[in-house]
Amino acid sequence: MEDELNNIVESAKQKVAAVTSRAGFETVKAEITGPNGALTKVMKNMGSIAKEDRPTFGKLINQAKTTIQGFYDDALGAIEQAELAARIGPAIDPSLPSPNDPLGSQHPLTKVREEICSIFKQIGFTVTEGTEVETEYYCFDALNTPADHPARDLQDTFYLPSDAQFGNVSKKADERYLLRTHTSSVQIRTMLKEKPPLRIISPGRCFRRDTVDATHSANFHQIEGLYIDEDVTVRDLKAVLDYFFERLLGKGTTTRFRPHFFPYTEPSFEVDFSSSHLAKLGSDWVEIAGCGMVEPAVLESVGVDQEKHSGFAFGMGIERIAMILYGIDDIRYFYQNDARFLSQFA
């Protein structure tokens, strides 16, 4: 009896060990512990065993069952592992490169624009958007630009045909539509729509009838700032721009104002900066922005109460700032979008 059990266990060990699949396992399992299995047969013979031997025999059978169950568990474990392994395939070579999947990237003009906006946001300026198609009134008249100012020439500004109809760009009267030459038009629309105090910046695309070269582009981007409040001073303007340029161009950046002329500000200044950080530029003054106190005629045209309110405005070119910040020497790179250029700003 005992020998028979030992034989069954021994043969179970070999048969189970040889199993490689779940189906094979089930067949082998049936041969041993199935209804007609070898061990089941022995157990069925329990009746023919002498009563006094039964406890010993039962014990032996239980031992055999436990041992065989151990074989089953091992085999099932091995099969499951093999199945999982089959699902994931052979081992990988971790040193192989990831398939060519260039990273997404933010365009440098967007990157600079966002940086500028976030610096201004910290001192309470929020972003306002304007349209690229504008009318002569909002782009020139309301900004105190004389009717025969050269900037209005067909030579310098893109116009739309006189019968053009724009559904979502409002006209003042019957003036012409044009592509805005600066973001300053947003000043006008904002002042007409909202009451002071105002603190906005407005980035956006502008157009001038320039032939493309290394520093000119028929379309380019500007960022405009407007601050209207009570008792605004020239010094406030300087303080805001000092703060901004030091944040943008790094500690140790200094700025200076230089008298200039714009029709929409009085006094008007150009802003130069000097920063030893920006290697290429050395310590010379470099022109970076235009600014001034909002011209009384402009405030008049939008109905701001000048007894109470005054303010300043400033504007700068985003391409120019990006070129200075990153040391880019040709404006056309921005519009070519070669991935070897774009990915440098990812």
């Binding site: 309470g124 020239v234 010094r235 406030d236 303080a239 805001v240 703060y243 200076r256 106190m293 009384p296």
Partner: peptide, 26 residues
């Protein structure tokens, strides 16, 4: 305002001092 500009010009626009940004909440 035109005279303001002239005064600042002769005073020296590079000498316009900076200062604290007036940043009230918006």
């Amino acid at each position: 305002v035109d005279l303001l500009e002239e005064v600042l010009r002769i005073f020296g626009t590079d000498k316009i001092p900076g200062g604290q940004v007036r940043a009230t909440a918006t």
